[in-house]
Structures are given as C-alpha cells and as structure tokens.
C-alpha cells in the first residue's frame, strides 16, 4: 500500500506563503521566542496560543516584519515567485510589503488606526499609499469595505474615537484588507470586547478569511477563539512551541503536559 500525499490535491498553490525557520528573539538574557519553525500555506489559518508572556506577541512581531529576529529567518512568497527573506531586503522594501502584502490587526485599535482621521480616510490610506489619486474611487472603495465589515457606510466621515470597541476592530480589519493582502496577522483581535461583540467579530473574520482565501496568523489566549477561527494551532510556553497540529486535535487530545493543563483550565472550548 502506498501512502502518498499529493500536494496538487491540497489546494491550487503548492508553495507555502510564509516560512519561519528557527525564529528566535531575545531580550538580554531572557527568551522572547526561540527556535520557532513552521510553514503557512495560502488559505490556512494558524492560531498561536499560550498564556501572557509566552512569547506569542514577540513571535508575531518577528513574523510581521516589525522586529528583526536575533536568529533564524522569515521568508515570504514574493508575487514574482520564490521565497524572500523579509529581513534581507531593505527596510524600504519591507515597509512596502507590510503595506500591501500583509496587514496587522492590533489588539488595541489605537495602534492600528489613526484616531483623528475619518473612517473613510483610515480605510483609504493604503490605497493612497500605493498611489491611488482619484478621490471618488478611493471613497467608493472605503464605503464598500465599511459595508463588508458591517459598519454603516453613512458613518464614513466619523472618526474612530466616535466608534465602539467592536466597530474600531472591524474598521482596522477593513483598513488592512482594502489593499488585498494575502496574509493577515491578528493580535488578540477580540481582547477587551464584550462576549456578544466578540461573536460578531469572530464570525466576520471567519467569513472574510474563507471568502477571500486569506492566510492568517491569529495570536490569542482564548482557546474558544482558536477553535472557531483556526485550522492549525501552535502552543507556546516560555518562548518555545511545545505542541502543534490540527486545532481540534490539539485541543481535544493534547499531548504535552502544558497543553493538557491549558485545555483543562477552561470549562469548554
């Protein structure tokens, strides 16, 4: 009997979109994250779970090109084909990629939005960054994206300070997705939101990721969020990945002592 996994059966694109190799970052003596390696495929949603201080956000910042890892490499599939080490290119190129190829939804909307620029301006910024110079078309695109994240387009000229927490998060998502990125990073996207608001946001993210075929990396300490949104899970403890695999398998049949502790510490995920 032959056991063959033919990549052609596993989606149209046989190459990973992001490849992390031995990514490590240290804060002096202390480990931020160490020895993290994985491949992310187009359309795949990877969850990174662990408690506060486990290195989730440090890893995310390295993967998203914000902080340079002290060791290891992060490679991204270039549009022209081939994998590009995002820290070997100039900062200028990396910043350009960060504005077009991927996007970050921050835990705190203040880190991801311009609070004193209107919702339309926030969404339109990435379009203007890439050189769009037609006001009418930029505005139409912004209104369209507001509707897609379930914000009344009639509020296009309101500023984020006038929005609720849930709306601010949805605005961040629109601001990131408007430029058609292939990969989205989310750092605790539902942190600080009411449970009912969380559910709405999670459903929106789930639908957008599926409809747009996005790859996503979602950092969360909430296992219920991980189960609902992610295909695959990495469990981090003290900066290292202790277990990874299919999300429902890691949560329902955890192998590592730490994962068993984590999954038993909640009532149901």
């Amino acid at each position: 009997m032959t056991l063959a996994v033919n990549p052609a059966q596993l989606g149209a694109d046989p190459a990973p979109i992001l490849s992390a190799g031995d990514v490590s970052r240290f804060y002096g003596e202390r480990i931020g994250c160490a020895g993290v390696s994985f491949d992310l495929w187009p359309g795949e949603v990877l969850g990174i779970v662990g408690e506060s201080g486990s290195g989730k956000s440090t890893l995310l910042r390295c993967l998203a090109g914000i902080d340079r890892p002290d060791q290891g490499e992060v490679r991204f599939a270039g549009r022209a084909g081939g994998m590009l080490d995002i820290f070997s290119v100039s900062e200028q190129e990396r910043r350009a990629m960060m504005r077009t190829e991927w996007g970050i939804v921050h835990q705190n909307p203040r880190d991801g939005l311009r609070m004193h620029v209107s919702a339309g301006g926030n969404v339109g910024e990435r379009l203007m960054d890439r050189g769009d110079r037609h006001y009418g078309r930029i505005r139409a695109a912004a209104a369209d994206w507001l509707a897609r994240v379930e914000i009344d387009p009639g509020r296009i000229d309101d500023r984020p300070v006038q929005f609720s927490g849930g709306m601010q998060q949805r605005l961040q998502i629109a601001r990131v997705l408007v430029s058609g990125p292939r990969l989205v990073f989310m750092d605790e996207p539902t942190g600080g939101l009411d449970v009912s608001v969380q559910a709405r946001l999670l459903d929106l993210v789930r639908v957008l990721v599926r409809d747009l075929g996005l790859a996503a990396i979602i950092v969360t300490h909430d296992l219920a969020v991980a189960r609902l949104l992610t295909d695959r899970l990495m469990v981090m403890k003290a900066g290292r990945v202790v277990e990874q695999g299919l999300t429902d398998q890691v949560l329902d049949d955890p192998q590592h002592p730490y994962t068993q502790l984590l999954t038993s510490a909640i009532l149901s995920a």
Binding site: R95, V117, G121, E125, R126, G131, R139
Partner: peptide, 21 residues
C-alpha cells in the same frame, strides 16, 4: 523615513479628509 522612501500617502489622507468634510 517617510521622506527618505517617498511614502507620501499620508499627505493625500490629509487632503482626503478635507474634501470629505
């Protein structure tokens, strides 16, 4: 950095805000 790399989208955000308002 924005000047160094001609990242001037933000200037148009300012003009956008004006027209919108």
């Amino acid at each position: 950095k924005m000047h160094a790399w001609a990242e001037y989208g933000l200037m148009h955000v300012r003009l956008y805000e004006n027209i919108a308002r």
